[in-house]
Design a protein around this nucleic acid. Structure first.
Length: 452
DNA sequence: TCTGGGGTCCTAGGACCC
DNA sequence: TCTGGGGTCCTAGGACCC
């Protein structure tokens, strides 16, 4: 694979776009299996095995039993008693994802990541260097396999959403043959003349943006397929779904999607939330957990060099009713102490007694953390500068790991170890874990969702 | 299917300003 | 003080995606 030269002008990309949607196959599980060749051929998932756990990713052997991501783990286990559960190792997936995105960048600078395992590539201007759209798609797929040992599926079209649907159609089928680099394996090109005949037979729920609620509304109009939606007058769609969503989906049903591939999109919020194996029932528990969440959020803000304007607390009660409370203090926030002060105030009048199953803290309105030393009013009041404390904590964590230091209020009953956030990625472990966390563990190397 | 955790985007009402 | 119209910001909630 030859690297793309520096000069690819945006001007050449304005008409007749060629867009690739690249989607890794069973990404998390595939990464795990590189380390565990002994499990190849067995049904394997990454996810939390606990009572409130869910499946994050399933390999094709597991899918053959009907197991899929977002399914509750209890149900997955029932469908496939031999299912192998692996706890997630997020840092591995992030690192692999970064390398894969770099591989994409060898073909075009216009790479828009959607998640760790998916991206859009606008290759309109890359065809003189790399050949036809199908040629480029095959080269991308082969390059990812050559560098990572991982397979992906590639959809090609002149619009984003058709490219995405095409990559899904190009996926290996559960129980089907294993992927190869053969000419037409794992790649589907939908030419402009074929868009409507490809699109219209699909279930309308396949469209990006049609979830359970929208599907229900469309079904009430007798819409089952994308073709049904296209035949409905736009007015009827708009009156049912609202102006924005209605016009957008109606246009999609006609194959129209002007959204460009946008590289380098900035993140807009950073947050942590956690569902508890046992509901929280008192103020002290809420206050302690808010501290834990704010500590985790502040730590990530520091790593990214960001500050936030608005803090939002989310509370989900045992009956699943969910509320949010937010506040924008007027000054950028960076520290655990500032975040937790606001977070606790936001829930001060909320009664935890019915049982709180989830708490979340997120920060939005992100901007660069100013490196100057303008003290906020808040900090000015404090005997010790909060920013300095936060910076010292962050430096220690950078050197010794996330669990090396933290608020004393988060020490567990032994008084020796910190209660940590972020291990239970896919739902709480089996019953409340008496299992301590090694305070010297490296980030992400905790007991994980399955440690229990 | 008794429902995770990371996010994005949209809507709607009210405060506030000109 | 029986009072318009446009714009922006803030807050709360919800749909949706991977």
């Amino acid at each position: 694979v030859t690297a793309l030269p520096d000069r690819v002008t945006a001007g050449a990309l304005t008409t007749g776009r060629t867009i690739l949607h690249v989607d890794m196959d069973a990404f998390f599980v595939s990464v795990e299996l590189l380390d565990r060749p002994d499990l190849v051929g067995q049904p394997v998932v990454v996810g939390g095995p606990g009572r409130r756990g869910v499946i994050a990713a399933a390999n094709y052997e597991a899918r053959r039993h009907g197991v899929h991501s977002a399914m509750s783990s209890v149900r997955a286990q029932a469908l496939c008693p031999d299912l192998v559960f692996l706890p997630g190792r997020f840092h591995l997936y992030s690192a692999a994802s970064l390398r894969i995105m770099e591989t994409f960048a060898q073909f075009t600078p216009l790479v828009e990541p959607i998640s760790l395992d998916e991206a859009f590539l606008d290759v309109t201007g890359a065809q003189r260097l790399f050949g036809s759209p199908a040629d480029i798609a095959r080269q991308v797929r082969a390059a990812v396999f050559a560098t990572e040992g991982l397979w992906c599926s590639v959809g090609v079209a002149s619009t984003k959403f058709v490219a995405k649907l095409a990559s899904r159609a190009a996926k290996p089928r559960p129980g089907g043959p294993a992927p190869t680099v053969d000419d037409d394996d794992g790649v589907l090109v939908v030419g402009d003349g074929e868009v409507l005949s490809f699109l219209h037979p699909l279930a309308v729920s396949e469209l990006w943006g049609v979830g359970p609620v929208t599907l229900g509304r469309l079904n009430r109009h007798g819409v089952e397929t994308v073709g049904d939606l296209a035949r409905l007058p736009v007015g009827a769609v708009v009156s049912s779904l609202g102006s924005s969503a209605g016009q957008h989906l109606h246009a999609l049903a006609h194959g129209i999607d002007p959204r460009p591939v946008v590289p380098g999109r900035r993140e807009k919020s950073v947050g942590h939330e956690q569902t508890y194996a046992e509901d929280l029932v008192d103020r002290a528990g809420m206050d302690r957990e808010l501290l834990r969440l704010c500590d985790a959020v502040a730590s990530r803000l520091a790593t990214k060099g960001l500050a936030g304007a608005t803090v939002t607390v989310k509370v989900r009660f045992s009956d699943f009713r969910t509320i949010t409370r937010s506040h924008s203090p007027g000054e950028p926030m960076t520290t655990t102490t500032t975040l937790v002060d606001h977070a606790r105030r936001l829930v001060a009048d909320i009664e935890p007694a019915p049982g709180v199953r989830l708490l979340g803290v997120s920060v939005s309105g992100l901007g660069p953390a100013d490196t100057g030393h303008q003290l906020s009013f808040d900090e000015f009041e404090q005997p010790t500068n909060r920013r300095e404390v936060q910076q010292t904590v962050d430096a220690i964590r950078h050197r010794w790991g996330q669990a090396a230091i933290g608020p004393a209020a988060l020490l567990d009953d032994s008084g020796l170890r910190l209660r940590r956030t972020g291990d239970a990625q896919w739902g709480p472990a089996l019953p409340p874990s008496p299992d301590p966390v090694d305070p010297m563990a490296t980030p992400g190397a905790g007991p994980g969702a399955g440690g229990g």
